Simulated assay, not measured.
Amino acid sequence: MKKIFVITLTVLAIMSFKGLDLVGNEFKIVGTVNSDFNGQKVYLAKTITEEVMSKLDSTIVKNGKFTFSGVSDKPEQRLIYFEEKRMDGQIAVYAEKGNITVNVNAEDISKSVVGGTINNNALAKLNTILVEVGNKELAFKNEHMDNFAKAKEEGDTETQNRIVEEYSKLTKEYNKTYIAFIEENPNSVICVELFPIILRDQNVKAKDLKPVYDKMGPEPKATEMGQKIETYLNQMLANEKAMEATEVGKTAPDFSATTPNGKTLSLKEAKGKVTIIDFWASWCGPCRKENPNVVAMYNELHGKGLNIIGVSLDKDDAKWKGAIEKDNLTWQHISNLQGWDEPIAKQYGVTSIPATVILDKNGVIVARDLRGEELKAKVKELLAE
């Protein structure tokens, strides 16, 4: 996201530039600057890393003007900077087909105005939004951060939770603004850069965000970021559907896989009066740390009707079997040995381990992701029914 935020954080005006006849994928950048800059060398560059730029072209300011031209098969972000003013900042611009204008702010390079083509015009609108968001972020920090730090020091969870909730509401407000921008500028490659920001909100649902992505034009979707976002949203969507199918109150869908001794075992065959589906792996530290508690509970309550079926996200058969033996996990186990591609984990929407799904005597899911004493208390409650 560095790409967006190095760009001018100001309300940008859109300028038109006429009279330049371009062909094919040619672009022309015409800059206007204070005459005090006459004779200065100005560069067109691209970012290699956050600290390193690669110079692509250079020219000299004459009569308050400078010009760059070239060919760009697709929109690519470039940086413009003056040799004698490099430390004062750079001007971000999208090199793309068309006539691009740069109105340099001599007092503050970062507040220069770029426009003229689809992505540079969209960038202007987005920067206006980013200024507003930045101001709200600063105001929120000034109003709440000291109180939050004090509440945390004093163990005042009520105040902490209230501030977190207020910030969550602010985040949702930002996301609505970002989504509106995407819908208003569907053909701009800048849109895809906003999805990672929106996805920082853990409450965002792919079922709401995927239609927004689908409405974008082919060019932003074809970018590397666009492809990554599509893959991620599809994964999220599949997980959300799995979670809905295995939420509390639903009958647990059956599954089967191979046991350590090479046989096939299904959930139906492994059920007890109370059944725990335990998702774990030999390489999962928290899982291994929790295993002694689960062993103690199982030894105490198995005779009363508790069954456990372990579903491992291992890939290494020997390590899987070795962990079962070392941790004395005497209940039933299965695995497809596919790691995070474990189909049963995907079927149940499991994206982190350890994870548990607790079933009653009828195979209905009554709880998820309980551990320790909370898990044991729930099992005892169900066994007493």
Rank of each mutant, 00 (worst) to 15 (best):
E51P: 00
S110R: 11
G70E: 05
Y94S: 04
T67S: 13
D73R: 01
T59V: 09
A92D: 07
V61S: 02
D108Q: 11
T101K: 14
L56V: 00
T47Y: 12
Y94V: 04
T47W: 11
L79D: 13
P75E: 08
E96R: 00
T67R: 12
S112N: 09
E83C: 01
I48L: 15
G89H: 07
R78E: 03
V104I: 14
A95L: 03
L56P: 02
K97P: 06
D57F: 05
A106E: 12
M87T: 10
G98S: 05
S58V: 05
M53S: 11
E51N: 11
Q40K: 08
V113T: 11
K46L: 12
E76F: 04
Y43M: 06
I100G: 02
S54G: 10
K65T: 11
I91V: 13
D57N: 12
V71G: 02
K97V: 06
E83T: 00
S72K: 02
Y43C: 01
E84Y: 00
F68C: 07
F66Y: 10
K62I: 10
L79S: 11
F82L: 05
A92H: 03
E50R: 00
N63E: 15
S72L: 01
I91P: 06
K46N: 14
E84H: 06
Q90T: 12
E84D: 14
G98V: 01
I109R: 04
V52K: 15
S72Y: 03
V93L: 07
A92I: 00
T47Q: 15
A92Q: 08
N103P: 00
F66L: 03
E96V: 00
Y94P: 02
V113M: 15
Y43S: 06
S72A: 15
D73H: 05
Q40D: 14
K46W: 03
M53I: 09
V71R: 10
G70M: 07
N99R: 13
A95K: 00
N103Q: 13
I60D: 10
V113S: 14
A106Q: 05
K41T: 15
V52R: 14
F66W: 04
G64P: 07
V71S: 10
S58K: 09
I80C: 05
V61P: 00
F68H: 09
K85Q: 14
Q40P: 00
E51S: 11
E107F: 02
